[in-house]
Write a protein that binds this DNA or RNA. Structure first.
Lengths: 142, 142
DNA sequence: ATTATAATTAGAATAATTCTTGATATCGGT
DNA sequence: ACCGATATCAAGAATTATTCTAATTATAAT
C-alpha cells in the first residue's frame, strides 16, 4: 500500500503560486503533507503533522488552508458517511474503497474507456460535474 | 419528479413488526413519512412532519427511529458532503444525482447487466459490501 | 399482576467545523 | 524603502448535527 510519496520530501520546493492561489508558508506545508501522506488524513491529522514545521499554526488555519486548496482544485476533499472530512492530493478521477477490517482507504481508478452515462440511468438532460464513488467492504486474505 | 407515494397515505396500515424490528407508533409514523416523502428528508424534516400526528415526539426519538430503521435495512441513510444525513425508503440499489440549480436529489438506477467490478480498478481481493454513488451537476433545460 | 426489557423524552454533552476579531504579513504604487 | 490596502493568520467563541444520559413510560414475558 502506498502511503508515502518519496518524490515529495520536506525539502521539496513548492512554487509561490499554484493555479492563482498564493502559496503562503502555511499552505505550502499543508500541501506538502498531503503530497507525502497518501492516507487521506483529516484536518486534525494534518494539524498534528504540520506542527513539526510550524509550531504556531492553528487548527483554524489548517482548515482555511485546506479549504483554499480545495477551492482552487489543488487537492480534493473526501467524505465518508458523516466522519471528519479527509483530504487527498490524488487529482485523478477516482473513487474510494474503505476496507472495514483495517480502516484503510484505497483509491480506486476507473477502467479505461468507461463512461458513467453507460452505467447509470441518469435523469434526462443531466450534466454531471462531479462524481463521488465510495465502496465499503473487506479484502480477502490472499 | 416523484416526491409523494400515493399508495402510502396517512391511513396505510403498517405491520407490528418489520424484519425483526418492533414497529412502535413512533417508528410507524417515521416510516410512513419516508414512504410518502420521496424527497430524501433530513432527520429534522421528518421531525417537523411527524409532529402533526405525534405532537409529543422528540427529535432524539426521530433519530432513534431512523437509526433503528436503517439498522434493520428498512430504509437507507444517505450523506452528501458533510450536510445533514438524509433518509430514503428506496431500497433498490441506486445512486443520487444532486441538481445544484434546484437542490433536488434524483435517484439514479444502474443500467441492467452492469457489474461495478467491470468499471472500477478494485484492489485485488476486494469484497464490496456497499456502494455509494453521488453525482453533482445541473439539468439542461429541455 | 409483576417483573424485566425496550423505547421514549428532554435536555445536556460532544465533536467537527465555521465564525469573529484583532494581529501580521504581503502586495502595488509612489 | 515607505504606506495604505488587502489577504492571511491565530485564538478562542459560536454553531450545528448528532449522540448520550437519566428518568419515565410502554410493552412483553412470566
Amino acid at each position: 500500500m502506498v502511503t508515502q510519496n518519496p518524490d515529495f520530501s520536506a525539502e521539496t520546493e513548492i512554487p509561490e503560486e499554484i493555479s492563482g492561489l498564493r502559496m503562503t508558508r502555511q499552505r505550502q506545508e499543508v500541501y506538502r503533507i498531503l503530497m507525502q501522506e497518501r492516507n487521506h488524513p483529516t484536518a486534525n491529522d494534518v494539524f498534528m503533522r504540520v506542527k513539526d514545521r510550524l509550531p504556531n499554526i492553528s487548527l483554524a488555519t489548517v482548515y482555511n488552508c485546506l479549504e483554499a486548496l480545495v477551492q482552487h482544485g489543488i487537492i480534493r476533499q473526501v467524505n465518508f458517511e458523516r466522519e471528519s472530512s479527509r483530504y487527498c492530493s490524488n487529482l485523478q478521477e477516482h473513487g474510494h474503497f474503505h476496507d472495514q477490517s483495517t480502516g484503510v482507504i484505497h483509491d480506486v481508478g476507473f477502467k479505461p474507456g468507461i463512461n458513467l452515462a453507460d452505467v447509470l440511468e441518469l435523469p434526462p438532460g443531466a450534466l454531471v460535474e462531479d462524481i463521488e464513488i465510495t465502496l465499503r467492504g473487506k479484502i480477502a486474505a490472499s
